[in-house]
Design a protein around this nucleic acid. Structure first.
Lengths: 123, 123
DNA sequence: GTAAGTATTATACAAAATGTATAATACAAA
DNA sequence: TTTGTATTATACATTTTGTATAATACTTAC
């Protein structure tokens, strides 16, 4: 196996691990953009992450029910185009505050000058 | 429980999950800055993440052995000030390439204009 | 010589998340 | 009736970190 193939294999393995725990963030971010039902959330997550994130609908359903249960997400029903009613999810006020707090502590880091310098460091 | 306490509880739970899978990135980033032994890596991870990341030395040892085994990290020994020799870890050429590839796909996202806009969106 | 502190390695179990498989229910349109 | 859309449910495998416990090894101070 060449170095290029090895690197790709290691990268894929890394990302597989990295993705666990990232899904919540991406769901919240997609709902911050606007009301969405499961398929739209899935599309948002995969496209806006340039497909570094993928997710199964099943995981989305699981998470959304959990989020609704704790009160950070709610939904309203809307008609599907060919099928039963869809649930359009949105962030509650609490959900919005939670996302903002999360971003502040965990994402804004990447705009920190020292981190930015390391990220772009040639080596 | 007030909304503020609830939010804080939810945030802590979220971060606990989020951290899993992030550690590899932080270890690599700390080694990109320069050779370090375990305690220095731990300090880097916790301080540069503004303590949104924490980690146990045990997890670092586990990861570093694994990384060395696959060839993305290596070490050279150096004297401890009061104890046995330390292992100073550094990224191999492959490790550097791997980190760069990871950053490109997973971190540079946050400099994307659409994502940046969502992150800063008032709501 | 002994005790305390530093540094690493090892094993084992709990907790938590996603992937995957499988199945059931429900509605609409061809 | 069949096909496609949409949701819910359960179960197991895999992986990672946290935590606990223990062993080994070297240095310095007492």
């Amino acid at each position: 196996m060449g170095n290029k193939e090895l690197l790709n294999e290691l990268l894929i393995a890394w990302e597989e691990t990295y993705k666990k725990g990232q899904l919540t963030f991406w769901i919240f971010l997609s709902l911050k953009e606007g009301k969405k039902y499961v398929d739209e959330i899935k599309t948002f997550v995969e496209e806006e992450s340039n497909h570094s994130m993928t997710c199964e609908s099943q995981s989305l359903y699981r998470n959304l029910r959990k989020f609704q249960h704790v009160g950070v997400v709610d939904f309203e029903t809307g008609e599907g185009n060919k099928g039963p009613e869809r649930k359009y999810y949105f962030l509650t006020e609490l959900g919005n505050a939670l996302l903002n707090a999360f971003i502040e502590r965990n994402i804004k880091l990447f705009y920190n000058e020292k981190i930015k310098h390391l990220l772009n460091k040639e080596d």
